[in-house]
Amino acid sequence: NCGIMHRIAQNIIKSHLETCQYTTEELQQLAWQTHSYEEVKMYQSKPRDVLWQQCAIQITHAIQYVVEFAKRISGFMELCQNDQILLLKSGCLEVVLVRMCRAFNPLNNTVLFEGKYGGMQMFKSLGCDDLVSAVFDFAKSLCSLQLTEEEIALFSAAVLISTDRPWLMEPRKVQKLQEKIYFALQHIMQKNHMDEDALAKLISRIPTLSALCTLHTEELQAFQQLHPETVNVLFPPLYKELFNP
């Protein structure tokens, strides 16, 4: 039903636009404002635990916006509380990574971090080059699909409302919502892209997203073993609640 699909698409696009940390215009204005050589050097000379803490704070901030996005998706708050929490716990970082492609400049491989754009080398002192480079590769590959804001919105919702998460109490209800979102996404992609495989290409990025989140958990565990105090005392409580082993 076209009417229902249109309503769902409009609701998700509106929810996305209302809950993005930066508007498209703001991002365009910032796109070529990069951290200077001295600023990058400053990030590189930070102790490992300090930069980890800064990143945990940024990620947590982004996640709060994703929670707000979820709440505004029609049907999400009608799911049982267990499933709302489960979908957010398992999907919020994936949505943050999808949203990150908005704040990624593929022309010079830089990402917006603390007000300006910077490259991978900015995160050197985190001590997890594999994770950082995988995240940058992902952002670059998602940017290459040249998604519109509407497609990013619907794809984010599709990533979040997923029946692949274990321990859902009402998987049928989640599935119904997921199907509607995919129909809307498919409809919009057919309208915008000449490439018939565009949707398939987009969906094929989902396993990479979940692999990135697994890698993040592993890196966090390794970091926590070396700096338990930093995690316990200085990391945002929400970040610990979501990712603590």
Binding site: E18, V67, M77, Q81, I85, P237, L242
Partner: peptide, 20 residues
């Protein structure tokens, strides 16, 4: 619920775009 009390609270809170 107890394990995810912050997430639970965020879900319960009503927030406006302005507050974000």
């Amino acid at each position: 619920k107890e394990k995810h009390k912050i997430l639970h609270r965020l879900l319960q809170n009503s927030t406006s775009p302005v507050e974000l």
